[in-house]
Computed example of a mutant assay.
Amino acid sequence: MKNIEPEIAISYSQDTQSHIEQVISFANFLREKGYACFMDMLLKQNETSIDFNEMMLKLIPVAKKVIIILTPNYKKKAENFEGGVGKEYRIINDEILRMDNKYLLVTFLPLSTTSISTLLPHGLEGREIIDLNEDQKNGFELLFSKLSDTPIYLFSPVNSKKIKTASKLVKPFELNPLNTKKEIFACIKKILSENKQLLMQYGPNSLIALSNPISTSSETWISIKANTIIPNNNYIISLLEDNMNILSQYECDIFYKFKIHANAFERNQIERQDSEAVPCFPLDFEKMIYKEAE
């Protein structure tokens, strides 16, 4: 063993000669792909007069990865601690809780027609099994991902800035809801008036902001947008969408301009947008509301 540096060791049950041949082919396939894979049959070719079961028991703890080839017979031997499989399984059972990434459970049997419960020994329930029949269709992508500790999907790092959305204003409790177009437009007029006064008093072109660019007015404006203007806009949208039947097609078109502006205005509050991405407040919406509310 002094000259062996096992990257991968294979634990399996010698069920039939056909199965042994398949395991040999699998081990050779891994070696062809650049992985120093060892199994008992390889050791037997290179050594004589040694206990190969004992050698495998020494290889498993020092191997970087251990592939367990599951079959119903492997399960039986592992659970009853029979023969070489039973001895290997004692080590596996002890290590697997501490070294999750070291052990790979695979099967040559298609899981589409084989019950997992017939393959997994006690202690390994719930663990992932690589169906080599399925993985072969993808060039053994999952197998090599596990062997090389390389993720299949490279996820982005978590952005330090969380995207947030402004809270929506709760509609006022009203036993006598707005019924007529004039009442609805009069309500919207008051809201637009509030938004306009706040914009004039604290907005980027307000006297405070222009006279003292380093003042806290920008922070105040951000707070006002989030807590008052955006909820006001959302209330207007909700109110008109609940009463679309009162609007003519022309008025609908003007309302949609306001809605596009309001949604872009809110997105810009959450994450800064290019100025071209935020349409200006449509003055014809204000004219429409004020005219009907008079």
Score class of each variant (00 low, 15 high):
residue 3 N to R: 09
residue 4 I to F: 09
residue 10 I to H: 01
residue 16 T to C: 06
residue 26 F to G: 07
residue 29 F to R: 13
residue 31 R to G: 03
residue 33 K to M: 13
residue 37 C to V: 06
residue 39 M to G: 03
residue 40 D to K: 10
residue 41 M to T: 14
residue 50 I to Y: 03
residue 53 N to S: 13
residue 54 E to P: 00
residue 55 M to K: 15
residue 58 K to Y: 03
residue 58 K to T: 03
residue 58 K to V: 00
residue 61 P to Q: 13
residue 67 I to R: 02
residue 78 A to M: 04
residue 83 G to Y: 09
residue 83 G to L: 14
residue 85 V to I: 11
residue 85 V to F: 07
residue 94 D to K: 14
residue 106 V to D: 00
residue 108 F to P: 04
residue 111 L to M: 11
residue 114 T to E: 11
residue 122 H to S: 14
residue 123 G to C: 11
residue 127 R to S: 09
residue 135 D to L: 13
residue 141 E to W: 01
residue 145 S to M: 06
residue 146 K to D: 02
residue 147 L to M: 07
residue 148 S to C: 02
residue 148 S to I: 03
residue 151 P to Q: 09
residue 154 L to H: 11
residue 156 S to T: 05
residue 163 I to V: 12
residue 172 P to Y: 11
residue 175 L to P: 00
residue 182 K to T: 07
residue 183 E to N: 07
residue 185 F to M: 15
residue 187 C to Q: 09
residue 195 N to D: 14
residue 196 K to I: 04
residue 198 L to I: 11
residue 198 L to Q: 10
residue 199 L to Q: 12
residue 208 I to F: 00
residue 210 L to A: 06
residue 217 S to K: 08
residue 218 S to V: 06
residue 219 E to I: 04
residue 222 I to T: 13
residue 226 A to I: 02
residue 228 T to D: 01
residue 229 I to R: 00
residue 233 N to Y: 15
residue 238 S to G: 15
residue 246 I to C: 01
residue 251 E to G: 06
residue 252 C to L: 11
residue 258 F to L: 07
residue 265 F to M: 04
residue 266 E to Q: 07
residue 268 N to C: 01
residue 277 A to L: 14
residue 278 V to L: 05
residue 280 C to D: 11
residue 281 F to D: 01
residue 281 F to T: 03
residue 285 F to M: 06
residue 286 E to C: 03
residue 289 I to Y: 02
residue 291 K to T: 10
residue 291 K to H: 09
residue 292 E to M: 13
residue 294 E to S: 14
